[in-house]
Design a protein around this nucleic acid. Structure first.
Lengths: 235, 235
DNA sequence: AAGTGGTCTAGACCACTAG
DNA sequence: TAGTGGTCTAGACCACTTT
């Protein structure tokens, strides 16, 4: 029925921060004092404060107390969509085509840190028949041996990997580039025109799992990011 | 000295997920059972599990129990750098120039949802003398009246806002576009060449605070995103 | 040296929901 | 309707760090 106390307290403290009652750098009352004010026990206050820490809004140090952060980094959470789901969710028809499938060899070596042979796949994802994403992927067969037995003719490696393979760490880079001649032709855009590129590398422990470069025609493509948390400084 | 129990337990549970011992969809033992296994009380288990929920790795429902999530969305945390800090951190000289400063009027209306007059600023940030970012900003003077009294000739509005003004919500979009004639000239690139554009809107409660379009030459510019959490499925 | 946050326990009640 | 997670209390001990 009623919201939990720690949540009510969290909301109240949040409001004191965003309203300016507690400006950046201001000291926040001790847990014990807040416990008295809200008529709860200290662990309940601690829970609310812990959430504020997670959201990057306050800093806490033993003996020094708690403060509103001075300069909060601008952070946003980016949700990188599954191609197929993204396209179908927008009501367009999804299309997939495998353009190339090859094992690594001396003329085409895998990424440096791969543990074993690499499987390289070049795929084109389309929305309503128009090129949407060009996927250039390497899979480390030492990490994902099952991939060697799949032809990926009907299903893209993106979806297949997402549903099967675990990872522990990923790194991503976003860039705007000029389409190469090959990319331009495959994506149906003019050579040199802007493309939005997502590069993602994935590891499981120390072992590389997969590395992919996703190229989208710049026109009409956007990545939307939402807040990591509420409150803080604006820019 | 020794890490807290809830952290040790969290790490162990995480390993069972990433190692495949608990594959996606698998049921996780009840809190009580885990409490026995790790020889702690139930709240300590709850703390470790809560962290896993925050990281998007497990789902919990009353009576139904806890499960490893089936399909985890690919999420990454994007840290959008402060221009000046970013440039200086890389050892380059930071340069700033105000190109235009104007109040909104009938020929140049502010963004639709602004509550009051808008202040528009066009600024160029440079690294080692070369254009790095073109900042096209609107500030809602109803939310930030102090901005009207500043000329922004020496300091960019980005930095000024970040250190002073609070917000409660932000939305961001990332796109790759072709440089317009004006942008190309100001950035010192060829018209039509790729630029990386970040668009950010910021509110405090229901009130718009600022809206900005940041344009970077595509060549050499990249945005790096790190994991939101470890574990999950790879793609 | 003292004050603060970090953690943990033991026990309890409640809300939700699957069966 | 019974089992599960969600929350809270009261009390305690410890680690860290500033004074």
């Amino acid at each position: 029925m009623s919201p939990p106390k720690h949540r009510v307290i969290h909301a109240e403290l949040l409001d004191r921060i965003t309203s300016g009652a507690w400006p950046p750098g201001a000291a926040i009352p001790h847990e014990e004092e807040l416990a008295r004010e809200f008529a709860v026990t200290r662990p309940t206050i601690a829970r609310a404060m812990a959430d504020l820490v997670n959201e990057g809004l306050i800093e806490r140090r033993r003996r020094a107390g708690s403060r509103v952060v001075e300069r909060r980094p601008v952070e946003a959470v980016l949700r990188i969509p599954r191609v197929r789901a993204e396209i179908e969710a927008s009501g367009r028809a999804y299309g997939y085509r495998l353009l190339r499938r090859a094992l690594s060899d001396h003329s085409s070596p895998p990424p440096e840190d791969f543990r074993g042979a690499g499987l390289r796949l070049l795929c084109l994802h389309a929305a309503d028949g128009r090129p949407f994403q060009l996927e250039d992927r390497w899979i480390d067969l030492a990490s994902v041996p099952e991939a060697a037995g799949r032809d990926f003719a009907a299903e893209g490696p993106n979806e297949w990997l997402l549903d099967r393979v675990r990872f522990s760490r990923a790194a991503q880079e976003l860039t705007a580039e000029a389409a190469s001649a090959e990319e331009a032709e495959l994506l149906g855009v003019a050579p040199g025109s802007p493309v939005f590129v997502v590069t993602r590398a994935t590891w499981n422990g120390p072992a590389p799992v997969t590395r992919v470069r996703l190229v989208h025609p710049g026109a009409g493509f956007r990545l939307v990011a939402h807040d990591r948390a509420a409150g803080g400084a604006a820019g």
